[in-house]
Amino acid sequence: MAHPVQRQAEIVELSPVGAYHRLVLQAEGIAERVLPGHFAALAVDRADGSLLLRRPFFIHRADPAAETIEIVLAEVGPGTRALARQRVGDTVDVVAPLGTSYSVPTAPASALLVGVGYGGSPLFGLADRIVEQGGSVGFILGASTAERLFGVEHAKALTPDVLVTTDDGTFGIRGQVTLPLTEAMRAIEARVVYASGPRSMLRAVAEVCSRESVRCFTAVEETMACGVGVCMTCVLPVVGDDGESRFVRSCVDGPCFDGSRVRWDDIGSVPADLEGAAAMGGL
């Protein structure tokens, strides 16, 4: 569990990166608390007051020495469009770091990192951490088309073991990231797989890892209204350490989960064997 703080963060860089935007924020006391997989919730001001809810973003990287955090965003709605139109020197109200981080091996290990589009942004700080601990990494990075890829050159600077896929075949292997997944795991003798991106991809990666008996950790991208565990809009059915299934909150119990414990098929429903399901059915 992270220990978040609220700050007025100054924008020190806002620049295009492919189809996305790289937002660098400087604020005291945040970067030093960040672990791979944590996220930040940014307030988006608008004169008409229509953007009340904070927007959650994975933290791409954190630099404690410079007291900065980096976020990668795509313009997908009024909130992200408003952020993309800020200027260097503007301030943004930030709560961070939030959520749980990836479970990082305590001993040197070979890890495969799988990301789709800018959703793979938290994997790079994770890769740095694994390499610093004497481990090794490989990447599979994918997107719908070449212009939607993120971090390919960054990944190649970290390791020669980088595979790229695009759904339309405009770059790399034609297909989705799961197409070369089994072969890639075996090639680098991966002991663990980390994935970040759309739910459908996380589910598919978790299924492949289960068949291969490889640990899998996923960072989910669920819709969050509050980001601090109050509103219950981001719940997922997850199997606990005791074998019981419960709804857990992605924002505080996640966003990083053991992929084998998330009941992917049951997201959006109330499974009959879920703890408290009978009471829910009576509401």
Rank of each mutant, 00 (worst) to 15 (best):
G125K: 13
C256Q: 04
R33N: 12
I59G: 00
V235T: 10
A204M: 02
K156V: 12
P36Q: 10
A19H: 12
V192H: 09
E207K: 11
M185Q: 06
W264V: 12
E244G: 11
M280G: 04
S121F: 05
M224G: 11
R85Q: 15
L23S: 02
P180K: 08
A111F: 02
L112N: 08
D128K: 08
P198W: 06
G49K: 08
S196H: 03
A195E: 07
Q26I: 06
G135T: 01
V5D: 07
L163G: 07
G276Q: 09
R261E: 00
A47I: 11
D242Y: 00
I188G: 06
G240R: 03
V44H: 09
L158C: 07
E222V: 06
V248P: 05
Q26L: 12
F124S: 06
L181G: 02
G169Y: 12
M224Y: 12
V252M: 09
C209G: 07
E10D: 14
R87V: 00
G37F: 00
T223R: 14
L123A: 08
D93A: 05
P255M: 09
G254M: 02
G29F: 13
A277P: 07
D93S: 15
L35V: 11
L83F: 05
A143K: 01
P271D: 08
S101G: 14
G151F: 07
V5H: 04
Q26H: 09
I69V: 11
V220K: 03
E75V: 15
L179M: 11
E132W: 04
S260L: 13
A219Q: 12
A111N: 05
P56K: 06
A74M: 15
L236D: 09
R7G: 04
S110F: 14
S144Y: 12
G79T: 05
G120N: 10
G18E: 09
F171W: 10
E132C: 10
L158N: 00
P97Y: 13
P36I: 04
K156I: 06
V238R: 00
Y194F: 15
E32H: 10
R54N: 09
M201S: 07
R61E: 13
R186C: 08
G77K: 05
P237H: 03
L42E: 09
R249Y: 01
A111Q: 01
F217L: 01
L113R: 02
L163Y: 01
C256P: 00
D45I: 13
Y194D: 06
R186T: 09
E28I: 14
S144N: 15
S103A: 11
T233H: 13
A127F: 05
R249S: 11
V177I: 13
V44N: 01
D45F: 15
H154C: 04
F150A: 11
I267A: 05
A146K: 10
G240E: 10
H38G: 09
A107H: 08
L42W: 05
P16C: 13
P4V: 04
L126W: 04
M280H: 14
P78W: 12
D167F: 00
R263C: 12
P108C: 07
T182I: 03
F257H: 01
V5G: 07
L53F: 11
F58C: 14
T80E: 15
